[in-house]
Each structure stands twice: as structure tokens, then as C-alpha cells.
Amino acid sequence: MAVLVTGGAGYVGSHTCLELLNAGYEIVVVDNLCNSSSESLRRVNEVTGKDFKFYQIDLLDRQSLEEVFNQNKIEAVVHFAGLKAVGESVRLPLRYYHNNITGTLVLCELMQEYAVKRMIFSSSATVYGMSESVPISEKSPLGATNAYGRTKLIIEEIMQDVYVSDPNWSIAILRYFNPIGAHSSGRLGEDPNGIPNNLMPFITQVAVGGVKELQIYGNDYPTLDGTGVRDYIHVEDLARGHLKALEKVMATTGVEAYNLGTGRGYSVIEMVSAFERVTGRRIPYKMTDRRPGDIGICYSDPTKAERELGWIAEKGIEEMCRDAWRWQSNNPCGYIEEEEVLRTT
């Protein structure tokens, strides 16, 4: 029996694949590679020494996805696949609604057809929207402020309805805060297309010389230094959270949401300072306007995950910065092989 990992070539997905393999699970990976690279999966194999099946398939392609269920005995699904850029979702809402929601519907219909009723869903802290107070718990009001967050919230509601219709389902909804860092080997990390949307890869690309300066979106938030505050979590801690959630859904039924965060917020300026302190690299930056849909302060109350999953974030901010820099300095062009870069320059 295998665990199907959708979007498994992505940043969090590839780290979770690695953790699943190291924990002894058989995995099957599906990814359309629209915002990821198959090189990440090759490196998962390299680091773990374990083989697994990979299908380059879009979840919207029902016929091809059904072949995956036909050809493998799937026991559970870890569902990462989806478009994920907040700013882009504001510009292209219809694309986000169609891709994220319809793809999930196709997946769930096939899961139901093949009696696969164990799921981990990759959600986001964006479902909390403009939260009036912090830390944010799972009982905090929901109300996303952008199309990306709304797709996550709608899918969460779909998961609730699926369980109501059939109580044999077991679903864990994992609300990520801000994943950063990289695998300690330096072989896996975050490799965004073009100018990064997220803070840490933006910082590391400035540090490695790929981008001239960091753009800080907004310096007039109600925070100590005016820049946005976020709860940053090491991607390895986040990946371990999926293993704990998988253990939970395999042993119970129901649908539960869990915050995966550290419970502490850092501002953009604090993150820049921490990175400079750890690496000795200066990060030039420029203040610019807020991005549509962004909020000022967001950090988690992760006690439910500790209580019910036995999970807690272990890695601190300096380790996050150090691992992110190890990845970027060892892979200045991301997953693009150096010889490929030479051929195209």
C-alpha cells in the first residue's frame, strides 16, 4: 500500500516525500511540474537511496489520474498540488479557482471511487484573513483576503462536507504559516520561478547575487519596525508535521484542522538581520508599497498540533537562515544543472 503525494516535486512536497521514505512509507508522486522541477525528486531519491514512482500528471486530467489509482494500491493521499502565489491569485482569480478547486474535486471523486478515504490537505494560514488578534488558533474566525486563500478555505469546507456525507473519511487539514529553510543536506530547497514571492528565497537570491536588492512590501504596518510580521517555520519541521498527521488519520476518522507554526512572529527587518548575522552577507533592500491581500501581523497558536498530533516545531530562526543559505549557496541557480546553464549562456 502506498501514499499518493500530489504536488510532491514542490518545496514542501519534496521535503515531505523525503520524510515519508525515511519513515518507511511507499510513495507515489503526481506533479504537473508547472511550478516545480523533477530534479527535486531525483534528489529525494539520491538522499534517501529509495525508489518511488513519479507521474507527470495534472489533477485536471481525470483519465490520467485514474490510471495512477488503477496501477497502484493507494492507502492515503497527501494533497499539496495547487497554485500558490498570493499576488498572482489577485491578478488571476479564475485560474486559481479552476486549478485548485476543480483539481481537488477530481482527486476526491477518484479517492471516493477507489475507497481511499485518508487525506492530509495542505492548507494555509491565509484562511484566517485579517485576524483581529494573535496568536491565531484553529478557533479564530476564518475569512481569506485573496483568491489563493479563498481556494484553500473553500477546499476546507469541501473536506468538511465530504466527511459529513461519509463518516468513514479521515482528513487532517494542515494550516501552514511561513515555511522557510531547506534540507540539512543542502540538496533540497525552495526554488521559485522568476522573482520570488516569498521572503527567504528573495533574501537568499540577493545574497547569491541573482537579484540586486530585496523589495520589502510595506513599512507602515502596526509593528515595531513597520514591516510585516510572520510565523516562520523550518520546512523540515513542517514535513514532520505531515508524518504525524498521517499517523493520526490512519488511526481515526473525522476531519480536523491544525496550525503548523512556531507560535512566534518575526518582522521582515528582523529576518534580514538574522540572515546577515548568520551568514555574514549584507542584504540591500528597498521599501515599496504593500502587496494587495497582504496583512500586517500573523503568527500561530500551535498547541492543538502538539496536543493531538504530538508535534512541535524544533528548529529556530538561525537554523532556518543557515539551512536556506546552504541550499542557495550550493545551488545558486536552483535545480538547474550547472552544465545546462553553461549551454544556454
Rank of each mutant, 00 (worst) to 15 (best):
N99M: 12
I195L: 04
L153M: 01
F121Q: 01
N146S: 11
A305V: 10
D161L: 11
T288N: 02
L65M: 15
N331V: 11
Y96M: 13
L94G: 03
K117E: 11
E314I: 10
G261M: 11
R290M: 08
S37C: 05
D294A: 11
A172W: 00
C17G: 03
A76N: 06
L260Y: 08
F202V: 00
M250D: 03
R43C: 05
S165Q: 12
T344C: 03
N178E: 12
V127H: 11
P222G: 09
N330G: 11
G13H: 13
Y11H: 14
N198D: 07
E270H: 12
Y221H: 09
V29P: 08
A313E: 09
E113T: 05
R277V: 00
I155C: 06
I180E: 10
R91C: 12
V5E: 02
L18S: 02
I233Y: 04
N330L: 08
V235G: 11
V272G: 07
E138P: 06
L20Y: 08
L243G: 06
T145R: 12
Y258W: 13
E318M: 11
L105P: 05
V229N: 08
A305D: 01
E247V: 01
K315C: 02
S123N: 10
R240K: 13
R91W: 00
T345K: 13
K244P: 03
R42A: 01
V106H: 14
D289K: 10
V206L: 05
D225E: 05
R343M: 15
T227R: 12
I173E: 07
C34L: 01
I173H: 01
P135C: 15
P284L: 02
T344I: 04
N178Y: 14
E39R: 07
G316L: 04
S267C: 04
P135L: 15
T145D: 00
V272H: 09
A115V: 07
Y11F: 15
M250Q: 12
E39P: 01
N99C: 12
F275D: 06
G87F: 12
P292A: 13
E236C: 10
V28I: 15
E66C: 09
Y266G: 11
S64P: 01
P332G: 08
K73H: 14
G87V: 10
L4G: 06
C34T: 05
S123W: 12
R42E: 00
K73D: 14
I136L: 03
N146L: 00
A251M: 09
L153W: 03
V90R: 13
